[in-house]
Write a protein that binds this DNA or RNA. Structure first.
Lengths: 228, 228
DNA sequence: CTATGATTCAAACGTTCGTTTGACCTGAGT
DNA sequence: ACTCAGGTCAAACGAACGTTTGAATCATAG
């Protein structure tokens, strides 16, 4: 049998390693987290990572895979539902933005099961120079981005597609900092309430304001974006 | 004499190391760039880094120091000039945003002297987990952020200061992705023109749209932000 | 009870890391 | 000519890295 699925002390070494590695990668980064740190934090033997995953790189990929699959599937399903309800009519931009970025914020609000830690890791990884990590993220996201950018294009027909792509990119940056940068922000001087319940409306109004801002002078169709 | 300042083959090993290290850090990150990569790219001996800088960490700090000092000084000087011209009247939010983020985009547009490379490195480093890099950035930025957030607060008296702080943070995220994420964006599927001359108005209209967006429901003074 | 496959373990592998050392070159000061 | 400080160099340092190995352990199936 491949998965015994019996009672309590099941093959959980694998999961303990995934959880410990995720937390350590958030705290120190990929390169600065050694196999010995991971396995000792997980209470496992040094060889356990290579036994269960094959290599450190494969462990990193598995950490992202197990979380991103659910996230992006939920995003696409929610967009499908929205478009089905609209029955061919273009969606409201705010609804599209809510689906994509709200899904991320919901995971980031889950501090119990490591969701917040993972989203910090993911947000930082967008700018990771490591080649195979970038490629893995790009493959995992390509289809989702295309779907959402397309939906926004239909929702904002006056805005050129390239402008929507750029603004989507800007929105990703704002979300990235909203999730991962809160600690770094407190270091930057001032007090701020870090209530995760208030983060969502804060980020959403900023994102929508940016998305629907008047187009820059050079762009075609130079008018305002559209209604939300 | 400390600086000979004589003719051609002056003590430029130090500068060659700084330039080579900057480029390599952009391409591979801090941890993945070894001293041997740096010194061989700079055409110097392996021991040269420790001789001229003391350690790898000190080299990293010096790379940021020599660039950030000028950038943040220029930002503060431009804000001083703006406030002097206004003669006590609050500034236009768009002018404040232009000064802070325009200064970064100007350096990022300079591909000749490594400005673009450095801004990519800086943008990525905002989310760097490395402890001493974070602290160094925080110290370097604390005063500047406080000045600009204060100016925005006077320009937008209806917006609570904490909301301005958050939106400034979001704007930093958008700028970070605007500068550093362009390559990662192309990997995400679609074609996009990467004309640096168009990047600035694109980002600026997005930032201003977000900054002046209606406040989220929970915030005090729930009205719109302000004029720009 | 024994055989089997999966898992854990201590120990070592070879490599690369950042740093240090001491000799050597060079050019200006006396 | 000699000194001496600033700079460069090849070589080595110990430590930590990711990975591999082969034996020990364990639960279960025959």
């Amino acid at each position: 049998m491949t998965e015994p699925a019996s009672r309590p002390p099941v093959g959980d070494t694998r999961n303990r390693i995934l959880d410990a590695a995720e937390a350590l990668f958030v705290e120190h980064g990929f390169d600065a987290t050694s196999m010995r740190m991971i396995t000792s934090a997980a209470g496992a033997n040094l060889a356990a990572v290579n036994y269960h995953f094959g290599s450190k790189d494969a462990l990193i990929q598995e950490i992202f895979r197990r979380r991103l699959a659910g996230l992006n599937h939920a995003r696409l399903a929610a967009l499908d539902r929205l478009e089905a309800e609209a029955g061919g009519a273009p969606l409201r931009p705010s609804a599209i933005v809510e689906v994509f970025f709200g899904a991320a914020l919901e995971i980031a609000a889950d501090t119990e099961h490591g969701g917040h830690q993972f989203m910090c890791l993911l947000a930082r990884t967008y700018n990771e120079p490591n080649a195979f990590v970038r490629q893995f993220l790009a493959e995992e996201y390509a289809g989702v981005i295309e779907r959402f950018v397309g939906a926004l294009y239909r929702a904002l027909p006056d805005v050129p597609r390239v402008e929507i792509l750029w603004r989507f990119h800007f929105m990703m940056g704002a979300m990235s900092f909203a999730i991962a940068g809160a600690e770094g922000m407190q270091a930057l001087g001032e007090r701020l309430d870090h209530d995760p319940a208030r983060l969502r409306p804060r980020l959403m109004s900023f994102l929508l304001g940016g998305l629907r801002a008047p187009l820059p002078a050079g762009a075609v169709g130079g008018g305002a974006g559209a209604r939300a």
